[in-house]
């Protein structure tokens, strides 16, 4: 178990290095630079040269990266070349919205997906068939498109929920929840169907196993067999899917935050790409990678907790 944690931690260091270096190197190849972006076409050559110097844009990429890395180790990811705001500060301000969105999506996927999948496995019939149809539909619809459709139905037409904007949970919990409903639904639909399908397949597999038949034959209650024994045994693949969904939702925020104008990391990433704001892109890459590593670690820990073979090894 400890082994696993050490391995995950060990891989995270080179991973962060590679990801940040990659964004840096790629970013430095960008035609047109931040100085040009800030000044626009109107800036004089002198202003341009001065700004380049100030931003260290004349140094080789390697030196720029080393400078950035030395800061990063101390928790300083540099300043946004566009707004001058420290990157860490800018990202932290936008973290709550993204985390709320991603956590909400995962939670909804887990609860609805597992419930749907379990019922479908045990009952079969029309529930199973409708799950088949829904799961392909969930897979096929782009989340940003779905978000737009939801907005046009629930905000524009029915006027039930806000179309855009974000309320911090500290200000108003109900406002926060209302702001999250549509983005979470838009992001979660694909995940729900994936979880439900995985749950059903895993449950059907477990329910066909020898020990379930032995328990049935020896008079265990159906309820305990399904909800305690089968679900516990089916948990590992479901968990894997949930981890994948969480990481996928992180990518989805790039599109969905744009639709709902949420002040999150995804929206910032798009903005920074358009502005060639290198430190911000690198910072977001680091944040996303860290979240991914944390999720994978949690999934691994949960495996160990679920599977005695791993735990006792």
């Amino acid at each position: 178990m400890l082994n696993l944690i050490v391995r995950r931690a060990g891989i995270s260091v080179p991973l962060l290095l590679i990801v940040s270096a990659l964004t840096f190197v790629l970013g430095s190849l960008v035609p047109g630079d931040a100085a040009r972006a800030i000044l626009g076409v109107s800036g004089s050559p002198e202003q341009y040269a001065a700004l380049r110097d100030e931003l260290h844009l004349d140094e080789p990429v390697w030196d720029q990266y080393r400078r950035w890395l030395t800061g990063a180790v101390r928790g300083d990811l540099g300043d946004s070349v566009f707004s001058g705001e420290p990157v860490v500060q800018a990202l932290n301000a936008r973290l709550p919205a993204t985390l709320s969105l991603v956590a909400g999506t995962t939670l909804v996927c887990a609860l609805v997906g597992v419930a749907f999948g379990t019922v479908s496995a045990v009952r079969g019939g029309w529930i199973a068939r409708s799950l088949d149809v829904l799961s392909v539909a969930g897979l096929a619809l782009p989340s940003f498109w779905l978000a737009l459709v939801l907005v046009s139905i629930f905000s524009v037409w029915l006027g039930l929920l806000p179309a855009t904007g974000y309320v911090h949970a500290g200000e108003s919990v109900s406002g926060w929840l209302r702001a999250l409903v549509l983005p979470v639904v838009a992001l979660a639909l694909a995940g729900i169907t994936q979880v439900a399908r995985q749950t059903r397949d895993a449950m059907l597999d477990v329910l066909g196993q020898d020990f379930i038949r032995t328990m049935e034959a020896n008079g265990f209650s159906r309820r305990s067999i399904v909800l305690k024994h089968a679900l516990r045994n089916a948990a590992a693949p479901i968990l894997t899917v949930l981890g994948v969904i969480l990481v996928g939702a992180l990518s989805g925020t790039v599109f969905v935050e744009n639709v709902f104008v949420l002040p999150g990391l995804g929206g910032l990433a798009v903005q920074a790409t358009q502005q060639h704001d290198l430190p911000v892109i690198a910072g977001i890459a680091v944040y996303f990678t860290l979240i991914t590593i944390a999720v994978n670690l949690l999934v691994d820990l949960a495996y160990g907790w679920l599977n005695p073979k791993v735990r006792t090894a």
Binding site: I11, S12, P14, L15, I18, V19, L22, T23, L26, G27, L29, V30, P31, L250, S251, V254, A269, V270, T273, H276, I281, I284, A285, F288, T289, T292, I293, N296
Partner: peptide
């Protein structure tokens, strides 16, 4: 396996965004 682990933990869309920025 190590390379695959690395790739799997990368933020796909962010990397793709950077590439888009670079390659016009």
């Amino acid at each position: 396996g190590a390379a695959v682990d690395l790739l799997l933990a990368m933020p796909v869309v962010i990397i793709v965004l950077s590439v888009l920025a670079v390659f016009h």
